[in-house]
Amino acid sequence: MTEAHGSTATPEHESSDDLGVDETPPGGKDRKGRRAAAEKPEPKKKSVFARLAVFYRQIIAELRKVVWPTRNELVTYTTVVIVFCLIIIGIVYTLDLGFARAALEVFG
């Protein structure tokens, strides 16, 4: 799995230029520092924990390549969703009030 990751690092970076996807290439020093920190707590059980640490670092590396929405996008989407939901909830609530009363008239 690590090999697959290593082999993809370079082209990933190259292609990011024209796509504008990945603006933050992982810094080499930073990565080494993190590896050292991750292996510190359990030096004896290296096999399991080291592998977990590698997996964890790979997750972080992938998360860095994720395109998160910008603040602007987030605000518009959130307000639109909230307004939409409020409208629907309002409609359904008034409908329910009316139908509950009608049911009471007919069956009660």
């Binding site: 292609s15 929405p69 987030l74």
Partner: peptide, 17 residues
Amino acid sequence: VGLVVFVEQAQRRIPVQ
């Protein structure tokens, strides 16, 4: 709601040529 929107919109884009 904000948090859910944030994560729902997040994508990992794999370039394809």
